[in-house]
Design a protein around this nucleic acid. Structure first.
Lengths: 204, 204
DNA sequence: TCCTCCGTTCAACGGTCGTTGATTGAACAA
DNA sequence: TTGTTCAATCAACGACCGTTGAACGGAGGA
């Protein structure tokens, strides 16, 4: 028994390093498979093979398939909800969307794809989404702000689903800048655009 | 052997009637389960039990689980793509969306939910969606009509997914009329609204 | 050196899945 | 009636799943 009770081997331990590396490899393989094929089709054995280890080791480290999935999605944080003056909300949402279009937020994708078949995943994302939506609604000063916020989220979800999950939707390979440019006027009709009279002159 | 070779027993056959009824019951149960839980979690045994028959009978009538699924989604037809003057396209899309918000198009939902986990389903809907998108793009006269059409579809998909599949999205229980009212200006920014100078005066 | 720890593998379990083929029993034709 | 057809059931198969517990083997401390 070691002398200190306040930590797992403070000295440099080659085995602990190896353990961490293997865990990370398993987590990476699991993330990739969950995103690619969803919760149901992803098997512990496939994750283990992709990580180059035995299936039993995955169980030993993560306890169960469900726990592994939760560990994967734990890393996927929603971006901070937009705030500030209403005319900037659309810009913030568009900026976040642009980021999601270029570099895939793999954890969120795993959650999104899996929540359609896995009730646990639906619950996990449902909570995060609710917080984001409430903050978004708060930033929109309108009597129907809740519905407007829900629609904005629905649009974002639709674009991400279309691009990353349904590969044949027509938004794959599209330029993120063009997408945001076309989406800007549409989102502004939902965020309020209160003050300025002539907001978006259509190019004609 | 009957006298006519041109049809399966033209006289009233109680067995044929019973057979048709059972097949319909299986198909209804399968549709409901595919929509509710997706392709992977739907088992032949569960379908059979919900229809009050044996699992073997489902196989005998439909051949395989995949064939049963295709039979279910075969009935789900996309609405005719909008056409006519650009300023009416948004209205036609909104009208179709309103219909989808009130009475669930169960076959399309089964496809939509399952295509996120089942590659075959993704391919099936990908074809139908492509036709719809091309027609929609043709009705929009703009250099980036293809991308605009894809975005319109993405928005519709997002709204339907949010309302019917992710139950916690904030669009469930929302009034379809309110949804379409809020979505109208947003869609008009995508369909073009070409001629008239002052198209949509924001309520102020 | 011997002993212990621990990352890792291995074989196997109970269960469920899609699928199959033999079998039953009632409705039909003769 | 007798024989045939066919909707429907039943038991079982092989495969794969998540999960478990015993066993192996190299590294670290004595």
């Amino acid at each position: 028994m070691p002398e200190t009770t306040a930590g797992p081997s403070p000295r440099s331990d080659a085995r602990a390093e190896q353990r961490r590396r293997t865990q990370a490899r398993i987590l990476a393989a699991a993330t990739e498979l969950f995103v690619a094929t969803g919760y149901e089709r992803t098997t512990i054995r496939a994750v283990a093979q992709a990580a180059g280890v035995d299936a039993g080791l995955v169980m030993h480290y993560f306890g169960s398939k469900q726990a592994l999935f939760e560990q994967v999605t734990r890393g996927g944080q929603l971006p901070p909800a937009p705030s500030g003056p209403p005319e900037q909300i659309a810009e913030q949402v568009l900026a976040q969307l642009a980021g999601s279009l270029e570099t895939e937020p793999v954890q969120s994708l795993a959650l999104l794809r899996s929540m359609l078949t896995n009730p646990e995943a639906a619950h996990t994302m449902g909570e995060g989404s609710l917080r984001y939506r409430n903050q978004l609604a708060e930033a929109i000063n309108a009597p129907d702000a809740d519905l407007r916020a829900a629609l904005i989220i629905a649009i974002i979800v639709g674009v991400i689903v279309d691009r990353h999950l349904l590969k044949s939707g027509g938004l794959d390979n599209a330029d993120p800048a063009e997408i945001t440019t076309l989406l800007r006027p549409a989102l502004r009709t939902l965020t309020g655009t209160p003050g300025p009279p002539a907001a978006s002159p259509p190019p004609r």
